[in-house]
Structures are given as structure tokens and as C-alpha cells.
Design a protein around this nucleic acid. Structure first.
Lengths: 220, 220
DNA sequence: CCACGTTTGAAACAGATGTTTATAATCAGG
DNA sequence: CCTGATTATAAACATCTGTTTCAAACGTGG
């Protein structure tokens, strides 16, 4: 649709700045000057700042959803109608998340962007992501449902979001946490390290005992 | 420091708007017009927008840290040097978090603000919170350390942050999730509901088996 | 080599932002 | 009641924002 050079430079610069400072806090002038590109280039190639933001996400989410669908295809074929264990499903998702930005070593950026999509974007972004990429998530949750038949539907819904929060929060705040961890435990933590640590936690969390039933209304 | 009326009206309005749209996305003009207060009042009473943001946080965190310290005092006294069980510690923290904004029914706002503090404010806010309120968290983690002696220090460090992520992410994104949950499961979820659901998940997560040791470098 | 669609470039636009200023109102204490 | 400090108001300030405009440069097919 355009010379790859300018467009790519804008995207590369924008995703880093967005991840570092958020959307509203990153001006087009900051992006274009750092990318050594004319200010008008953003509006020319993307139309608006909103569309730039969506394009930044699309560059991660398009390959992700494609790979994830493929991975789930293979999994369903391999298990031939039998239930896919929860660990395998989680493992597959983790692997796919790791694969996509691996080429550019931008997993951290990817995670920060996902975090921002939840916490910042009030309107257009969340809607865009939901409409554009909601189907993979639906497919995944259905497989999780089959893998955890003992969980009531709404309990599983919430637990999945609990774990989504765990992962996104941790990986998107990684830099700040890493500094503390490094200072206190003298250990440099990689993303792969964290995912290794996350796995047993997530699995145990999903298999936690059911909560005690809610108390009826009327208590302070 | 000033007439309570104007200052309070500004704080009340600002915290809601910040929670809804973030800091950069909320202008002083939006705040002052909604609060029916002159634009200059913010700079007069608080000095700057940054200080307004910190004041909004202080109004929650000051009572929180005070209550939490008191609660930990009581706990340590009650257990008289013996180890306080993990469930009790988590329960106490949850109860304190619930108590603080209870008077104004603003728990949702409180949680959203905490989420924003992590995801948005790159600079001043995180530093402010760390310096002003870091000591309670240190005290709490030390008690958690005694309650979970089987966990290596760095593993506990990360798991605590995992769980922090779970809670903040869920409760701060509650509105969006609630809409989905309500539509799909016809159930209106309260914050107390969520905390009830969170408890067994958090406890199980903290007690999950240790991760398998890291593979040595050299694999793709 | 020329002409035409595509891409860049510098400048200007209209509007919003946080902050400051100078003046008016308010309210207490002598 | 008058005085003096505190608080409120309206206007202006300088700066920054996303977006447009229009002319120049570019590259490519005829």
C-alpha cells in the first residue's frame, strides 16, 4: 500500500514509544522526529493517530491469531476429538505468544501494548481488538471449557481473566519489576524465565478449589 | 490548608474522571467544569496537575497504610511471635482494601487508580507511591515470607507480583469484564463477589509446586 | 524524456492544554 | 466598620496537539 520504508519506520518507532509512555502521552511529533520522518507522513499513510495505533496492534495480532489458529488446528487433530489437557492448551498459547515477536525481540513491547489496550483505550481500541480478534479467544476458551469440566462456566470465565491479568500485568510491568528483582536477588530475569515460573502458578490457580458460596445480602 | 469545599469537590471529581479515562486523557478544564469550580482553583490549591494526581492517591493510600499497619500490629500481637498463616495475611489485606473506600462506595475507583498507577504513570507517580507507601508493602512481604518458608525468596517475590497483577488487573478492568459476564451468564458481579472468587485462586497460586529448573542456554 | 500518480516536505491551521496574572469577592480579627 | 489575608473569578499566556494544505521531489510507464 506504500513504500515499506517510511511506514515501517513509523510503526517501529511508534510501538516502542507507545509501550513506554502510553498513547495519549506520545505525540505524533515525537514519533515522526524520532523516526526521521515528516510529520504529515503519519496522516498520509495511516489517516489518523487512531488508525496508527490500530495498525501497531494489527502487526502483532494478525500473525498471532493466524499462528494460534494453526496451533489449535494441529492440537485438535492430534487429540482426535479427545479432550486436550489444560496444561497443553496453556503451553500452546504461551508458545505462540513467544513466537510472534521473537524475530524482533519485541515481546516486551507486545506485552506492554496488550496491557495498555486494557487499561488505557477506553473506546476504539478495545472495540477494535474485540471485533477483529475475539474469535480466537472464543475458540480457545471453548477448548479450556472441555479441559476443565468441573468448573462452573462463570467460575472458569473469571479464572481465565484472573490469569490473563497475571500474565499481562507481570510481563508488561517487567522492566520495573526486573530492576527490583535484580537489585534484591542479583538475578537477571528473562521473559522465558518468567513464563517458566508462571506455568505452575497458572495451572494451580485454574485448578484451585471452588470458592465458598456467596453470603446472602445483608452483611456490612 | 484550604476551604474543604472546593478542594474536596475537585478531588471527588478528579478521581472519578481519572479512573474512567486516565490521567493524560483528563484535562483540568473537564475536571473543574464538572466540579463547578474555577479552572485556576486546581493550580491554586494543588499547585499543578501532577500534585493533584498525587493528592488523589494520597486520599486513599494514607488511610489504607494506616489501617493496614494497625491490622498487622493486631495480627502480630494475636499470634504472639508465631507464624501468621498465609490465608490470614491475604484475608487481612483484602479486608483492609475493602474497608478504606467503603464509606464512599468507591472501591472500583480505588482499584482503577491502582491499575493506572502501574500502567500509565511512567515517572512521578510510581516513584511517589514507592517512596511514600513502600514500607507497608515491605512489612507485608516479610510476614508472607515467614508464612511460606518453603518458597525460595525470588520465587515468592515473583508470585506475589503475579497475584498483585491478578487482583489489580481484574478489579481495575471490572466494568468491561462485568458487561461480558452479565451478558453471558446473566449474573451481576460485585467487587465482593470477585474477592470471594479470588481467594482460593490466590492461595492455590501461592502454594503451587515450584517450577522446573531453568534449561541452560542454547535452545532456540 | 516526458507526464502522471505517489510520496515527501515545510508551513500553517484550529483547537486544546497547563499555567499565570491581575482583579474581584469573601471572611475573619481588631 | 475597617483592614488584611485568604479564596474565587475571568482573561490571557505560551505551548502543544492532530490534522490540512499545497508545492516540491520522486519514481515509473509510455
Amino acid at each position: 500500500m506504500a513504500q515499506p520504508d517510511t511506514v515501517t519506520r513509523i510503526l517501529d518507532t511508534a510501538e516502542v514509544l507507545f509501550a513506554e509512555r502510553g498513547f495519549a502521552e506520545t505525540s505524533l511529533r515525537t514519533i515522526t522526529s524520532k523516526a526521521k520522518v515528516n510529520l504529515a507522513a503519519v496522516n498520509y499513510h495511516f489517516g489518523s493517530k487512531k488508525s496508527l495505533i490500530q495498525a501497531v496492534f494489527a502487526r502483532y495480532l494478525d500473525p498471532f491469531t493466524e499462528r494460534f489458529h494453526r496451533a489449535l488446528d494441529e492440537l485438535e487433530h492430534a487429540y482426535g476429538g479427545k479432550v486436550i489437557p489444560l496444561e497443553v492448551l496453556l503451553e500452546t498459547m504461551a508458545r505462540t505468544v513467544l513466537e510472534v515477536p521473537a524475530e524482533r525481540n519485541s515481546l516486551k513491547v507486545f506485552m506492554k501494548l496488550l496491557g495498555l489496550a486494557y487499561s488505557q483505550a477506553q473506546g476504539h481500541l478495545r472495540r477494535y481488538i474485540q471485533e477483529e480478534y475475539g474469535s480466537v479467544f472464543t475458540r480457545f476458551t471453548e477448548l479450556v471449557r472441555q479441559a476443565t469440566p468441573e468448573l462452573p462456566d462463570h467460575e472458569r470465565f473469571w479464572r481465565l481473566h484472573f490469569m490473563l491479568g497475571t500474565v499481562i500485568f507481570t510481563l508488561s510491568g517487567l522492566d520495573a519489576l526486573r530492576d527490583i528483582a535484580e537489585k534484591d536477588y542479583g538475578e537477571h530475569v528473562t521473559v522465558r524465565d518468567l513464563i517458566r515460573r508462571l506455568r505452575p502458578v497458572v495451572v494451580s490457580a485454574m485448578q484451585a478449589p471452588l470458592p465458598e458460596p456467596a453470603l446472602q445480602a445483608g452483611q456490612a
